[in-house]
């Protein structure tokens, strides 16, 4: 584990319940603008030592970004709507 590289588990696959099909671990660790998916700990915790992987490869600042609880859908949509409107102006 001490010498674990970022791409060690990249070829492992499992069903992604957000997308609805199988994805490689590489996707799960990089899909969030090169940070992991918000669900990475939940989805991979029974398959590989994901907590050690995360602790090793990401700073607490990064973790606070990608492990932040998902906002309710209406809030997400509202945020994106405002962002799109702001960028247009």
């Amino acid at each position: 584990m001490a010498n674990q590289k970022m791409d060690t588990h990249d070829q492992l696959q499992q069903h992604c319940r957000s997308l609805g099909h199988r994805v490689p671990f590489e996707y799960c660790r990089s899909m969030n603008t090169n940070l992991p998916c918000n669900k990475i700990l939940a989805c991979w915790k029974n398959i590989l030592p994901i907590d050690e992987f995360i602790s090793k490869h990401y700073t607490e600042n990064e973790m606070s970004v990608f492990l932040a609880p998902t906002k309710p859908k209406l809030i997400q949509i509202f945020d994106l709507m405002k962002k799109a409107g702001d960028s247009e102006r």
Partner: peptide, 14 residues
């Protein structure tokens, strides 16, 4: 899903 005591996900006002 915390990684122990050193990291706690930030709260969200939901």
């Amino acid at each position: 899903y915390s990684l122990g005591h050193t990291f706690v996900p930030p709260p969200i006002h939901a």
